[in-house]
Amino acid sequence: MDNNMLFREAEETDVDEVVKMLANDPLGKTRENYIHPLPDQYLKAFEAIRSDPNNELIVAVWENQIIGVLQITFTPYITHQGGWRATIEGVRTSEYVRGKGVGTNMITWAIERAKTRNCHLVQLTTDKTRKDALRFYEKLGFQATHEGLKLKL
Rank of each mutant, 00 (worst) to 15 (best):
D14L: 02
D14W: 01
V15C: 02
E17L: 12
V18D: 00
K20N: 15
K20D: 08
M21P: 03
A23Q: 01
N24C: 12
N24A: 15
L27R: 04
L27D: 01
R31C: 14
R31V: 14
E32C: 06
I35W: 07
P39F: 04
Q41I: 04
Y42W: 01
Y42L: 05
L43R: 04
K44T: 10
K44P: 01
K44C: 09
A45Q: 01
E47K: 07
A48Y: 04
I49A: 02
I49M: 11
S51H: 15
S51N: 07
N54S: 14
E56H: 09
I58E: 03
V61P: 05
V61I: 13
W62C: 12
W62Q: 13
W62T: 04
I66H: 01
I66K: 01
G68W: 00
G68C: 08
V69G: 06
Q71T: 02
I72T: 00
I72R: 00
F74L: 14
F74H: 11
T75V: 06
T75Y: 00
P76Q: 08
P76H: 10
Y77K: 09
Y77S: 10
T79M: 11
G82F: 08
G83T: 03
W84A: 08
R85G: 02
T87E: 12
I88F: 02
E89L: 12
T93H: 00
T93S: 10
S94N: 03
Y96L: 11
Y96H: 15
R98E: 10
R98F: 09
R98C: 15
R98D: 06
T104G: 07
N105D: 09
N105A: 15
M106P: 03
I107G: 11
T108L: 08
W109C: 07
W109Y: 15
W109K: 08
R117I: 14
R117L: 11
N118Y: 13
H120E: 03
V122G: 06
K128M: 10
K128L: 15
T129H: 09
R130A: 15
R130W: 12
D132N: 11
A133K: 07
F136A: 02
Y137E: 07
E138A: 06
